[in-house]
Design a binder for these strands. Structure first.
Lengths: 347, 347
DNA sequence: TTGTACGCGTTATCAA
DNA sequence: TTGATAACGCGTACAA
């Protein structure tokens, strides 16, 4: 509302239409057992149109028991995986006339805590949370006790909730085995800090696959910002006994790996084979195409939102853990040969 | 709040601490002229902690004159340009304890209308809007009259607001001239529908640059979904008199161009030079590197949010149009030769 | 230093 | 079929 001039309320509409407050309210909410005459209803509708009235959801939220808002807290809004999750959530929410509030915690538990607190303060009806590891003391668990929550991508330590995720361990193991099959013996696992649940599971899958083959895995992880990852990768690739293959645990890491390889003059996959996590739009467009684990991000977002809405709708039952399928998309960065072009039209 | 169990209120805290409502309220809001004893304040704080109480912002919003929420409506949440705008907005909002509600209109004016209505209903304090062309009758203009709004990326037809954007016309002309300098005579401009403001301006810049050089531009535009763009590009590239260069107006179009070129066996930049819009993370990592116009997305989001908060803070003055600098980032897809690798360390 | 009354815009409930 | 009243949780204004 413009400074100093307050918004139209139901009262204004009632006065304009020459009826009582409740009549307007009833017309707006369209009671099933229609308790008003069509004539008055029409007058009300016209008044609403004339005044450009929009019901105040804030008041409704206070009066009723729902706000029609859900929260979504993930690591990032620019990372393509999280963005696709957000997209899925948004679509589900839109269908139900819910509004999502998106926040990025940057994998920082203090920021996350503030964000959850803010959402709690807004009395969101539910929360979708990709929980960050808690390195500092927070009251997160107490807060979550009062908000129906579905965990996205990772379970929430110390809290039992529904959860939508993939089998990170199996996916990482499969990708690793694929590199081993290409004959690699020195393979490095590079990514964020393994306190993050998904990184931890991927690490375990990687190490297990290596051990299966009688190999030792090189695990190198680091904090979340980009520059250190680049430095780390460079260091790994500059050593005298450098690995012949790298498993990058997410898109950002993959970017740094490619950048470092280029800067060091290493050919992919000839000098260095690479496998990654997350099949974003460009994975198939770079040269060579990137072999990656595809996570169904949008579907994960959708399912998590559905689970949440089911709970909000009163569905009981034990907490569920939904494991969606991931898939190893094989292109060329692992050393596989290129599939032929779809067609070859001369110009 | 868990089903059936309502949230903690200020009353619960008062009871727990053995004080009156107002004492709690005052402790929470920290009145300047401290009107309570430190002892009671401490008791209150402990009660808050014990109960996990968070002030009800819904009630506060209803009582006061602000909600602490702003809306952000753009085309997409997965497109890297819009995601970076959102990131900028989020950072500015976080600093001021504002909560942003992000929505994607998909360039559909009816969805956009519903979203703005929803935000209006939530009584957001302000709105950042990347307006979609209005192809159907909507009441958008009337709605915006009651919400402080800043236009992001494009002005809003029929509404005078502050606006943050780049000089699309000049940027497109520069990119086009660069292609012309490489000797190209047949250049195609490919993208979304020119009813979208930015596309329109880019078209104008493109055509102007072509005409300057005594050339005719080939302009081919289309609706917003991906598949048709691919088909369009393929058609353009399959004709007997195909262009030797393409100017792709956004990331999605660029993807389709590269895909089509690959599928048709056209080498870039040899058979087809390419220039695009938006310098996302992968533009420099693909081979060849993509020559693109860099838009300062995060900065645009930040500035737009700042402008909005300034207005919310009561700043008067005529509406501003902030034009941020874009930059032509020259890599190799245009035909320029590669810069040498930063270093070349042998392994 | 603390407490009471009222109103923000809406809807549930009851009365007309 | 309609209207009046209370209540949602909080903060402002005032009284104690």
């Amino acid at each position: 509302m413009r400074k100093g001039q307050s918004a139209i309320t139901i009262k204004d509409v009632a006065r304009e239409a020459g009826v009582g407050l409740m009549t307007v309210s009833r017309v707006i909410n369209g009671v099933p057992g229609k308790k008003y005459s069509e004539a008055t209803a029409e007058r009300v509708r016209q008044a609403i149109e004339r005044l450009g009235y929009e019901p105040n959801q804030v008041a409704r939220s206070l009066r009723g028991r729902r706000t029609g808002v859900i929260g979504l807290v993930t690591t990032s809004i620019v990372d393509p995986f999280w963005a696709s999750c957000a997209r899925g959530v948004e679509l589900e929410a839109r269908e139900r006339n819910y509004v999502p509030i998106l926040m990025a915690s940057d994998e920082n538990c203090e920021i996350e805590e503030r964000q959850v607190a803010a959402l709690q303060g807004r009395r969101v009806d539910g929360l979708l949370l990709a929980a960050t590891p808690r390195l500092h003391r927070t009251t997160l668990i107490a807060r979550l006790a009062s908000i129906p929550t579905v965990a996205l991508d990772r379970p929430i330590a110390g809290v039992k909730t529904d959860c939508v995720m993939i089998d990170n361990e199996a996916a990482a193991a499969e990708a690793t085995r694929h590199l081993i099959q290409h004959g690699h013996r020195r393979i490095a696992f590079v990514g964020y800090h393994p306190r993050i649940y998904t990184v931890q599971k991927r690490t375990i899958g990687f190490v297990a696959a290596m051990n299966e083959a009688g190999l030792e895995g090189i695990v190198r992880t680091i904090g979340i910002t980009a520059a250190p990852i680049y430095d780390l990768v460079r260091e790994i690739l500059s050593g005298r006994n450098r690995p012949t293959a790298i498993f990058a645990t997410n898109t950002m890491t993959m970017q740094r790996v490619l950048q470092a390889a280029r800067d060091l003059g290493l050919a992919i996959p000839g000098d260095l084979a690479v496998t990654g996590f997350e099949d974003f739009a460009w994975a198939g467009l770079v040269e060579p195409g990137l072999t990656v684990v595809r996570q169904p991000g949008e579907e994960m977002g959708r399912r998590a939102a559905q689970l949440l809405f089911d709970r909000l709708g009163g569905q009981k039952g034990p907490t569920q853990r939904v494991i969606l399928d991931s898939e190893l998309v094989i292109r060329e960065s692992c050393g596989c040969t290129k599939r032929p072009a779809v067609t070859a039209v001369s110009a």
